[in-house]
Simulated assay, not measured.
Amino acid sequence: MPHDSDNSSLPPTAASVLEVKDLHTQFDTRAGVLPVVNGVGFRLEKGKVLGLVGESGSGKSVTGFSIMGLLDAPGRIVSGQVLFNGQDLAQLDARALRNIRGNRIAMIFQDPMATLNPVLRIDVQMLETIHAHRKMGKAEALEHCRQTLARMGIPSPHERLKAYPHQLSGGMRQRVAIAIALLNGPELIIADEPTTALDVTIQAQILSEMQQLVRETGTALIWISHDLSVVAGLADDIAVMYAGRIVEHGSVDAVLDTPQHPYTQGLIGSLPSANQRSHRLQQISGMAPNLLDLPPGCAFAPRCPRAQARCQQPPDMQTIEPPLSQAATATAHTVRCFFPGAAPANAATPEAAADLSRSAA
């Protein structure tokens, strides 16, 4: 089966903090091999935000774990490169990765308790994170912890340092988890749906704080989410994943105003803000494919309203997947589709997508 790198059509840049090239991650199971990440590639520059979106099971979280080197058996990177400032993380041993994780690269998880130890006070956990990578006196380190908590909008940071995780609200715990990720001034942060379980008010506050952080520090950010409305107001670029592949990639304006892939159009069309009142929400028919039994040709073809014979190739033919190619709308806008183009008449309009972007900003 031919593979193409998702970032092959993107212009090179010397400012890239992260460059993922033709990344393949699979899980070896008793039922067979699961190609969870299948030829993913993208670049991320300093001070930029990439929104990685898609349904559950699309491979976006595993992409993040692959970059961080946090895959547990039976998961493994089969091929590809993860270049962090030119250094291939996929080739580093466990010790070298530990020196980078939590220091130059940090990850924020959906559940803050994946970061926080329930039996240790917040100050102990934050000091451990600092001393694991930097030599700093206790008084100076505690002051740095207080300042970092205050940056995340946490009131009375001195008192919060003495608290245990169970004494904090869910939103406060997530803020502390983000503060821990920021302690050592990482160049790259990967956030895996960190606001999904929070109410919309707390979510909006955290998103605003993350935007300010990126502007002030130049930190590069990958925001993984299934919620396109969240990514619309936060990211500079959007990469839409389906069945382990990036199917559309471009700037927020290009992807939301002129979506070219029918899957992206379906995601936008299913949002309440993209539908008229009293009308039924649009939905993408069918279910995401079983990665153990992907359809021949385009993985989205069984659910696609514009699929043709070329998309659904007979099993006895050589399987040819649609390549990731430049869209007609913008130079850096790429789409993986044999028949890309405007949405059908009953889909969300570009104006609705633009309203989505503005309302989320």
Score class of each variant (00 low, 15 high):
Gly218Met: 14
Val176Met: 11
Leu356Asp: 03
Ala347Cys: 12
His133Thr: 13
Thr115Trp: 11
Trp223Glu: 03
Lys21Ile: 15
Leu267Asn: 10
His158Trp: 13
Leu92Gln: 07
Tyr164Val: 08
Ala354Pro: 08
Ala106Ser: 15
Ile105Leu: 06
Arg215Cys: 13
Gln203Thr: 03
Ser278Lys: 13
Glu143Gly: 08
Ile202Gln: 03
Gln276His: 14
Pro112Gly: 08
His158Val: 15
Thr195His: 02
Leu188Tyr: 14
Asp237Ile: 00
Leu234Gly: 09
Ile202Lys: 01
Ala361Cys: 10
Leu116His: 07
Gln91Met: 14
Leu198Cys: 04
Arg175Thr: 04
Ala301Thr: 04
Ala139Ile: 00
Arg215Val: 14
Pro259Ala: 12
Glu321Phe: 02
Val53Lys: 10
Gln212Leu: 13
Ala239Phe: 06
Ala132Pro: 08
Ile320Asp: 00
Ser169Asp: 15
Ala163Met: 14
Gly233Ile: 05
Gly69Ser: 03
Arg215Lys: 15
Pro112Trp: 07
Pro259Val: 06
Ser66Val: 04
Ser58Gly: 03
Arg160Glu: 08
Ala361His: 13
Arg310Ala: 11
Ser61Met: 10
Leu294Gln: 08
Ser56Pro: 00
Phe84Pro: 03
Gly32Phe: 03
Leu34Cys: 08
Arg43Gly: 01
Gly297Glu: 08
Ala301Asp: 10
Arg310Ile: 12
Ile320Asn: 03
Gly32Ser: 07
Arg215Ile: 14
Ser5Glu: 07
Ser229Gln: 10
Pro272Gly: 07
Glu216Asp: 15
Leu18Met: 06
Pro186Gly: 05
Ala342His: 00
Ala307Gln: 03
Leu52Trp: 07
Ala191Met: 03
Leu267Phe: 12
Asp88Arg: 12
Gly341Cys: 10
Arg134Pro: 02
Met113Val: 09
Ala274Asp: 06
